[in-house]
Structure formats: C-alpha cells, structure tokens
C-alpha cells in the first residue's frame, strides 16, 4: 500500500510516508514479538520467579504453610549458629571430591570404546543403561545389594572374603562408599557419552599426522587426544559439580535417608527434612536461599568457563 501526500497536507520535518509506514511496521513487529513471548514470560514468571521471590521472602519468616510470622534473620542465625550447615556441606563436598575419579573412569571407557578394543561393540550397547534407570531404582538396588544379607556380603563370602563383609549402611565411611558407587554407576554412561562425542568430533588428520611423526599410542593420548577434550572435560566437571549440590536428594532418600545419624545429609535433603518432616517451611526456605546462592556461584563459574574456552577458540 502506498501513501500520497496532497497539497496542503503538513509533513513533519524528517517524516516521510515511507518512514511512517516503516515505523508502523516496526511497532506491529514489536507487538507481535511481545505477544509471542508473553506466554513463555508468564510461565517463567509463575513457575520460576514467583516461587523464587516467595522463597526468599519466607526465608525471613516462621511459616508452617498457613501462618506466616516475620522473624528477620532468625532462620539464618539458626542455620549458621548451630553449625549444621557445615555438616550438610561436608556431604556435598565428599561427592564433589569424588568427581575427578569418575571423570577419569569415563574418559578411559570412552577412549576404549573409541579405539574399538575387544568387547567395545557389546559395551557400547550397554554402558548407557544405568542412565536410563531412575535414581529411585538405582537407590533401592543399592540398598538391597548392601543390606547385611545382601548380594555384596554374600558375594564376598562366596569368594572367601567373608571377613570384609560388613554392615555397609551402618557406618558413615561405608555409607559414602555405597552412595558414591551409585553416583558413579549413574554417571559413567553420561560421562562416556560426552567424551565419546568429543572423541568422534576430533579431526582424524591430527592423530594421523602425529602417527606419521612417530608418536606412540600413549603419547598421542596424552599430548593430542586428551588436550583436545578440554571443553568436554570442562562441561562434565561443571554439570556434575552442580549435580552434587542440587541433585543428590533422590539418591540419599532411597539409599541412606541421611544416615547413619545425619552424617550423609546434604543441603538439598535437609531442605526436604525441615520443610516436610519438621514442617518448618520458613527455615527450609532459608536453607533453599543459601543453596540458591551456592548454585548461582557454580552457574557463574560454568558460564565464565565456557566464555573463557570460546574466547580461546575452544582449546
């Protein structure tokens, strides 16, 4: 559609009919754009921002789900004052320190799969299976395997190592061993998949050139293959670091329930206990806010890491 300017019609300085039309179109595009994102914005606001804001607010209250009473910083004083938070964080820290080991195991498995070692074809079809099981299933399996008369103790006895049979979930150290084994079992498939993807994306010419130059298998592995996996390693580290702070609930709930005592209670499980067992939703909100801050720092590190790597050209 075109517009004509007739004699006597005033035209604002710098405004032509074409420009007006363009401006209208821009406004219309903006409106359409806003309307398009509105449903998503409403959903994000309702499902993320509203709960987040109310959680921060309730962190300053004594709230049982019905009655709310402003108590200022009392919940935070209680959390840091009785020192329990350090015990919960210790549990998170134990998992955090276990990540490098599963990283190495996943890398080894990925390299063996990539190198088509004997049995690789079979293993390639089964290694991801544990990732497809729900954590609840893995947890219950672990609980029954490591019961006093479970498969672990029976197997030890069967091979003449009955002296090593123990009440696995009755002691803190062995409870952590069981939990970390479950964590590894679930993470191995994911880790191997990440590294296998990284290895597959690696240009074969680089490895072949090194081979021509006389580099042996080990030298190629440590000098070429692994350095080129740095982005994958970084991704694996940051995602699992986030997991050990916010994702342990289901594993702990199904395997140890925080026991023995409360020695395997991580921060996210404590939120469940204080909110839904003790009914102290205000205190639980305060713990949630502390966890939010922690995870935000982790997320910031994650973004910063990726920025760093992308600036370095992915190296």
């Amino acid at each position: 559609m075109t517009e004509t300017v007739t004699a006597g019609q005033r035209v604002a300085p710098g405004t032509t009919p074409v420009r007006r039309a363009r401006s209208r179109r821009r406004r219309r595009d903006t409106l359409i754009g806003l309307l398009s994102v509105l449903p998503a914005l409403v959903l994000v606001a309702a499902l993320m921002w509203y709960p987040l804001v109310t959680t921060v607010y309730h962190g300053f209250t004594d709230w049982d789900g019905v009655v709310t009473k402003w108590v200022g910083l009392d919940n935070y004083r209680q959390l840091f004052g009785d020192g329990d938070i350090w015990q919960y964080l210790r549990t998170n820290l134990v998992f955090f320190l276990s990540i490098p080991v599963i990283l190495v195991i996943s890398l080894v498995v990925a390299v063996l799969l990539h190198e088509q070692t004997p049995g690789a074809r079979f293993f390639r079809s089964v290694y991801y299976l544990p990732c497809m099981l729900s954590v609840a299933v893995v947890g219950l399996l672990m609980r029954s395997m490591f019961a006093p008369d479970g498969m672990a103790n029976r197997s030890l006895s069967a091979v003449g190592l009955g002296g090593l049979a123990t009440d696995w979930l009755a002691y803190t150290v062995t409870s952590f061993l069981v939990l970390i084994l479950a964590f590894y079992w679930q993470t191995l498939g994911q880790g191997a998949l990440i590294f296998l993807a990284g290895l597959s994306a690696m240009p074969s010419s680089v490895v072949e050139a090194a081979q021509v130059d006389g580099a042996g298998w080990w030298r190629r592995l440590f000098r070429i293959v692994l350095p080129m996996q740095t982005p994958a390693i970084s991704y694996f580290l940051v995602t699992n670091t986030a997991y050990v702070f916010v994702g342990l609930f289901s594993l702990i709930f199904t395997v140890t329930r925080g026991g023995p005592g409360s020695t395997t209670v991580p921060l996210d499980y404590e939120i469940y206990l204080s909110a839904f067992q003790s009914g102290d939703l205000g205190y639980a909100s305060a713990v949630s806010v502390v966890l939010l801050v922690l995870v935000s720092i982790i997320a910031w590190l994650q973004v910063r890491n990726f920025d760093l790597y992308s600036r370095q050209g992915g190296r």
Partner: peptide, 18 residues
C-alpha cells in the same frame, strides 16, 4: 517429632559403636 527423629538418627550411630 523432631526430637524423635533425632533419637532415631543418633540411635544408628550409638548402636554401631560410633
């Protein structure tokens, strides 16, 4: 109830000799 839960938790430790 919180005290009872604490007893259950602590009982695991003392029963295990900890």
């Amino acid at each position: 109830t919180d005290l009872v839960n604490e007893i259950y938790a602590q009982a695991q430790l003392i029963w295990a000799g900890k």
